[in-house]
Amino acid sequence: MSGHVAGPRPVEIVALHVSPVHAFEGRPGDGPRPDPEPAGRERVVVRAGLGIVGDRYFNRRAHQRAAVSLFAAESLDELARRLGLAGPLDPLLTRRNIVLRGFPVDELAARRHRDGTSSDGALFGLDSGDGEIRFQAYRPAAPCAWMDAVLAPGAFRGLRGHGGVRCAPLDDGELRLGPATLTVHPPA
C-alpha cells in the first residue's frame, strides 16, 4: 500500500449498487439493458467469500476474487472537471457496488511492477455502523467503453487507472449509505 497508515479513516458511502443482470452487454450505442429493479440501495448484505446478496457476481466461482467492486467518488468529480461538465455524474452509472468518498480506493488494488512481479492488494475493512466487514483487494476494476455512453464522451479514457478495485469479502455483515470508517489493516 503506498504510504497509507493503517488505522481507521472516516469515509462516506455515497452509493450502493446491486443488480442481478449485466446492463452493459452488446454495443454501447444501443444503450444499457434496464435493471429489473432499482439498482441503488440504502443498505446491502455482504456474505464472506460470496459477495453482495442479489448482485450478478454473488457466489460466481469465476468472480470469487472480484465479487465486490469499490470506487472513489472523487474519481467522478475529477472526470467531470476535466471534461468540463456542468453537473456531477451519477455514481450508480459506474455499476460499482460500493462508491466511497474520502479515500483513494484505487491504491488498494494489487500492483504489477516493472520487473514483472506483483504485490498483493490491501486487506481493508469497512464499517458503516453495523460492525466491520473485511475485504481483500485484488485487481483494479478497469473502466469499459460503456463509460462514454452512460457518463460522458471521454469518460472511458478519463477513468483509466481510476476505475476502482475488485475485492472479495472476508466477513458477513451489512453496509449502508452514509458515514463509515475504512481501515487499512497491516499485511499479515
Rank of each mutant, 00 (worst) to 15 (best):
91 P>Y: 04
66 A>D: 13
135 F>R: 03
80 A>V: 08
5 V>A: 15
3 G>I: 12
16 L>M: 11
13 I>E: 09
58 F>L: 12
157 R>A: 08
20 P>R: 07
76 L>F: 00
8 P>E: 09
101 R>Q: 07
10 P>R: 14
17 H>P: 06
164 G>L: 04
4 H>Q: 08
148 D>C: 05
37 E>S: 14
68 V>C: 04
31 G>K: 00
27 R>G: 01
64 Q>F: 13
42 E>K: 12
105 V>K: 01
140 P>Y: 08
76 L>R: 03
2 S>G: 12
24 F>S: 10
33 R>M: 13
61 R>N: 10
27 R>I: 07
113 H>L: 05
25 E>N: 11
11 V>N: 04
2 S>M: 13
98 I>N: 02
171 D>E: 07
172 D>L: 06
181 T>H: 10
80 A>P: 02
101 R>W: 04
30 D>N: 13
5 V>K: 11
48 A>M: 07
148 D>R: 06
32 P>Y: 10
119 S>W: 04
132 E>V: 02
33 R>G: 09
26 G>R: 14
89 L>M: 01
78 E>K: 00
56 R>Y: 14
6 A>G: 13
158 G>N: 04
153 P>Y: 05
63 H>A: 12
76 L>W: 00
15 A>W: 09
75 S>H: 08
113 H>K: 06
98 I>Q: 03
79 L>A: 01
4 H>L: 15
51 G>S: 12
74 E>Y: 03
28 P>D: 14
64 Q>A: 11
65 R>S: 10
146 W>C: 01
84 G>R: 01
139 R>C: 11
135 F>H: 03
40 G>L: 15
57 Y>R: 00
44 V>T: 05
28 P>S: 10
180 A>I: 05
65 R>W: 13
76 L>D: 01
62 A>D: 15
137 A>S: 05
45 V>A: 08
39 A>Q: 06
36 P>T: 09
110 A>Q: 08
18 V>G: 06
27 R>D: 11
156 F>D: 09
158 G>R: 03
129 G>W: 06
49 G>D: 13
181 T>C: 03
33 R>V: 06
49 G>E: 14
115 D>A: 05
72 A>P: 05
144 C>T: 02
44 V>R: 02
52 I>D: 13
85 L>N: 02
125 G>Q: 12
108 L>C: 03
34 P>K: 10
186 P>W: 11
69 S>P: 01
